[in-house]
Design a protein around this nucleic acid. Structure first.
Lengths: 186, 186
DNA sequence: GGATAAACATACGCTAGCGTATGGAATCAC
DNA sequence: GTGATTCCATACGCTAGCGTATGTTTATCC
């Protein structure tokens, strides 16, 4: 029998997997331990308690939720290309360390019964909306509703995908086109 | 001391209130009883068990989630007016019987750890998307992505409002305008 | 206005998960 | 290799919520 020694990261990854698959109520020490074929002895060695574990998950996510997008768009030089690229990467699933596809909606759902999570989501939303605002401003689109339309569409479609399983690739591209039509006209 | 005798509907309303304010984890018999200043003796008189209570909540919602929208749009005669009106009513909060504002996002969050809820949301989403498809088809817009864009935007903005507290009135109106620009052009 | 039923209160045993404590195995230092 | 450290297993008491059983109150019906 191979004895896999676990790291905090392993637990956190298992946490995101459970969060995505079974919802926030699955983020408990003993069930997670079972999913890793171990006991909560390990859990309480790596983390002080359950809230501390939650905080660790949240910290990892908040750390990458904004910068991850920014760096992913760095390769594109002009704002229009960045907007189009944003539509593409948003249509893809999240990395495995966050529980694979539909990690973001799962975190938003988590925010409903956890204040700390809600606050983190608040901060990330504000940052992303600000970034979108700047992007639109760069191409001369100052309509204050555009970031909300695009980001809202992004969130909503991710949510929809979870239920109907469909891809958002086409829809997001079309949405960006609809918005950029304003740019062509100006 | 006035003895308020409770009905199943009172319990269900309290359920939606708790769901909206504290999340799915608040849908438990004893906490709900406390919120109504009573005991679970009443709960188990009106409902067989907790899953049965959940089913009752869900049944009420599913019953009104689609038809409610359709009847709200009946006053408008042509499809374009209906689309604009849809944007308006979606920006308002849900009726109090469903826990006031942001009831829909709460139910979507609930769907994450409850299969029955997820199935109900599936059915409602399909119906609403079908309705939107018909609406767009009526004005000659056959682009299959449009229902997803509008409905996704609706869902996402509702979610955003919960966090930043902002209204979606302007953004939804603008989104409808962006889409209807396709109609003007054709 | 006493009998009947409906609506609620209370007490009970049960389970899942929490956090602690302590012992045991695996790994590292040298 | 043995001593120390790191990591995990197990056992314990505790609490919240479940569902049942049974008692109490409140309304209803003639």
């Amino acid at each position: 029998m191979v004895k896999n020694r676990l790291s905090p990261e392993t637990w956190i990854a298992a946490g995101f997997r459970a969060l995505s698959e079974k919802g926030p109520s699955a983020l408990k020490a003993e069930p997670l331990a079972r999913s890793l074929n171990t006991t909560k002895g390990s859990f309480y060695w790596h983390f002080d308690d359950v809230p501390a574990f939650h905080a660790a998950m949240l910290h990892l996510w908040e750390d990458r939720a904004f910068t991850g997008i920014v760096t992913a768009l760095e390769s594109e030089t002009n704002p229009v290309q960045r907007l189009r690229k944003l539509g593409e990467i948003a249509a893809q699933s999240a990395p495995e360390e966050f529980g694979g596809p539909a990690a973001e909606p799962a975190i938003r759902a988590w925010a409903r019964d956890n204040t700390k999570v809600a606050e983190a989501v608040d901060r990330i939303d504000a940052k992303r909306m600000g970034y979108l605002s700047d992007l639109f401003a760069d191409i001369g689109l100052t309509n204050a509703e555009l970031p909300r339309i695009l980001y809202g569409g992004l969130i909503g479609m991710e949510e929809l995908s979870r239920h109907d399983g469909a891809s958002n690739k086409e829809a997001l591209a079309t949405l960006v086109d609809l918005i950029l039509a304003l740019y062509e006209d100006s």
